[in-house]
Design a protein around this nucleic acid. Sequence first.
DNA 1: TATACATTGTGATATAAAGCACACACTGCT
DNA 2: AGCAGTGTGTGCTTTATATCACAATGTATA
Lengths: 216, 216
Amino acid sequence: MTTPNNTDNLSSEFPVPEVVIQRLPLYVRVLTQYSSAGEEVISSEQLGSRLQMTPAQIRKDLSYFGRFGKQGRGYDVAMLEHQLREILGLDRTWNAAVIGMGRLGRAVVSYPGFAPEGFKICAAFDTSNAIVGKTISGLHVQSISQLTESVKELDIKIGIVTVPIDHAQEVIDALVEAGIKSILNYAPLSPKVPEGVMVRGIDPVLSLQSMTYYIR
Amino acid sequence: MTTPNNTDNLSSEFPVPEVVIQRLPLYVRVLTQYSSAGEEVISSEQLGSRLQMTPAQIRKDLSYFGRFGKQGRGYDVAMLEHQLREILGLDRTWNAAVIGMGRLGRAVVSYPGFAPEGFKICAAFDTSNAIVGKTISGLHVQSISQLTESVKELDIKIGIVTVPIDHAQEVIDALVEAGIKSILNYAPLSPKVPEGVMVRGIDPVLSLQSMTYYIR
DNA sequence: TATACATTGTGATATAAAGCACACACTGCT
DNA sequence: AGCAGTGTGTGCTTTATATCACAATGTATA
């Protein structure tokens, strides 16, 4: 790395591996815990032992973005947390829409874990006329045909898909059409999306199905 | 690979990479779809295009376990599905216990996706006396102190953790203590477990937090 | 039966990720 | 100020994963 102390735009010169990006939120989480436990400094050793990974890997990961530590001391907890949040874009609020207001969708909109982390579910949609028009958890359920409009109006950047599998691909197509680039998909399928659109799947069954291999 | 046509115990001679195991359920899922669409044969090319991965990777993955295809033709859909289910241990039913009967736990026990795949939630636990003794979705909620006993009695092999973060580690310790080797963890923390115990985390917030990097 | 074509299975190769090990920098003690 | 101790940042090495490319083996057709 040629220009060490500069945190910005290193990432655009050298693309950062996606696995690294996926680990950063883990670091943020531990740092938050440490911080609220009153600790001011943390070493890669301590971080690593919390997450069951090697200190070297943590230092390598962080080195993609700059030099945040002090030799002989470690990392300033508050400072590192702040830096990582900034890198990940967590220093702001993100608006999200949930599509599919069945059992799962209702559970998602009432899940209390999103808001404290800055993810605000601000619109709800469904394909079925039976549900459209109702109000669930304070959200007015709209028809999918209003998706594009609402996305623009409310500055929605994230789509959360909770429709049954047989509607999932079309809903995802609609989200893409509406300009959404980040999708959290609860439907048990691997959807097709154009390059530049990112989908993360939440699928407890898949997780179970690979664990059984080891206890068989 | 020395003894090709033999499906068994290859895996114990050469350990199969975990990434490979994690992909097998994806293959199973596509095969099920293909099968119910009336297709009898599938090529690695077709499978790959469904899952957005290269045909070569699929063939390599399968080759860890045997030779299932026919040159010039492809794979028999029904046969391959059956083989993969057997390899993963999905040719049977698995009993699971849910620990934590709050909002999330209730959503999990009433989620209709587990049963059709052979995962049967047959016991519910909670740490709070306020909930213990109640019946939720047909499950009698027990105290955590009865965990070990029930695990043995009901042949429970999987623990699903849906308690709040501040009780998660102790609940996981209790599961380990009770002899559970596979844990599905909905709590937002990276728990410590002894070697030989496998934990898969379900964490929508983590997924969102790494996606924001790309739309920042 | 011969010929054209399709698709597997796999050794060899390329790419990516993880881990090692040590110079260097900072702290804190005497 | 000097010295001992600690922990970072990183070039280099090792290990893991993915891809290539082609011989081998099958199908389909005439």
